[in-house]
Amino acid sequence: MIEFRDVSQQYQAGKPIIRHLSLTVSQGEFVVLIGPSGCGKTTLLKMMNGLIKPDSGEIRIKGKELKAWDPITLKRNIGYVIQQVGLFPHLTIEKNIAYALDIQKASETVKKERARELIQLVGLEENYLAKYPNELSGGQKQRVGIARALAADPEIILMDEPLGAVDQINRGVLQDEIIRIYQTLNKTIVFVTHDIEEAIKLGTKIVVMNQGEIMEMGSRDAIVFHSKSHFADDFIGNKGFLSYLNIVKIEQVVCPFNGNVSEKEITLWVSAADPLIVGIRICLENGVNQIGVRDGAGQVVGAFDLGCLSRLKF
């Protein structure tokens, strides 16, 4: 979908933002770019829709070289969500969502229909369509921002710290929404963040950057446990591990009950959908080695103990 080959970029001579960077984003991936401020992650993202042009190297979007794309057409083929949301204050939510269709001269009926469809997708009531952005809370605005990026049904969506300005509680909810939308619509997403927890939670592929270079790149498991670079190890560290425990579900490590303990003797239970950290906490809190696991319907599915963790396969 997106291919960078030996791309470099500098705003000022001698101060490179991106150094000889190569990266491939495949169809259907959720790629998270993470790194300290100034590492070039936002620059990298903006190169993907042509907002920033590279000094050297080759960029291909959907197999076509960046230079061969008409810059306007390219941007219309890619959804774009930014941190401050950037909703248009003089337009209603409906017109905001339909903006990408409007500039491509879609008919009024198509625009109305699509706006109604998308407001539901991002979990807002239809009556929000008639409101103006200043009547919405930060989290609601960002939902609209996401709906707006989806309007023209782009295959690729770029998100530049979309939840950076959203409070902690709403951030978790919106992260879940983004995952849900990603899974339902089967889009390719590139997401910039500086929040390690967010990166571990969202990405199917996590790219750790520093000083314009990719330090490490891989799946959640690989980044948390098998990082080869010193920098990524330090940067992700225990915070990443903690996020990992918060995300991986107990159902992935359920094991049979230990031989001499029967199901009836178990008094402590967790749900299979709970994250590992819940199970570990219950064990530590109660000083037990083993607790039971039930599925959503209340059926017993097996046991959880610390030894089970070795069942995680990377």
Binding site: L51, L74, K75, R76, Q84, G86, A149
Partner: peptide, 18 residues
């Protein structure tokens, strides 16, 4: 006009006239 608003509009593929 707020830079963020302009960036969003440009990033979505507005022509200069739009």
């Amino acid at each position: 006009v707020d830079d963020q608003i302009l960036e969003a509009a440009v990033g979505m593929g507005s022509t200069p006239w739009q």
